[in-house]
């Protein structure tokens, strides 16, 4: 898998532990940044994908800190991740 410029929650492997690096909202929904921050998506927070929905993996089940949220794929794409220690392994 080649690394694109940003590695987001939408691309994270199911069950893999990550940390939030930052948020970037699409231009049509700038308010998402604030909403995501409020439900716990802040820099450094533990995050992982618990499950993916029906075909097309949308929506996703996300563990953020101690809570579980359902996010649409488009929302998960706003969450940039550090691909540090647990970055995806070459498959």
């Amino acid at each position: 898998m080649t690394h694109t410029s940003k590695f987001t929650l939408a691309h994270a492997r199911t069950g893999q532990a990550h940390r939030v690096k930052g948020l970037r909202a699409p231009s049509h929904a700038p308010e998402w940044i604030q909403w995501l921050e409020e439900i716990g998506f802040v820099d450094g927070e533990h995050v992982s994908v618990l499950a993916r929905g029906l075909p097309g993996s949308d929506p996703l089940v996300i563990r953020i800190g101690q809570s579980t949220f359902a996010l649409r794929k488009a929302e998960a794409e706003c969450v940039e991740l550090h691909d540090g220690m647990h970055a995806e392994q070459a498959a």
Partner: peptide, 13 residues
């Protein structure tokens, strides 16, 4: 229109 819908729904324990 140009609405984007959001989900962001908590799945409580």
């Amino acid at each position: 229109g140009q609405q984007t819908r959001s989900l962001m729904m908590e799945l409580p324990s």
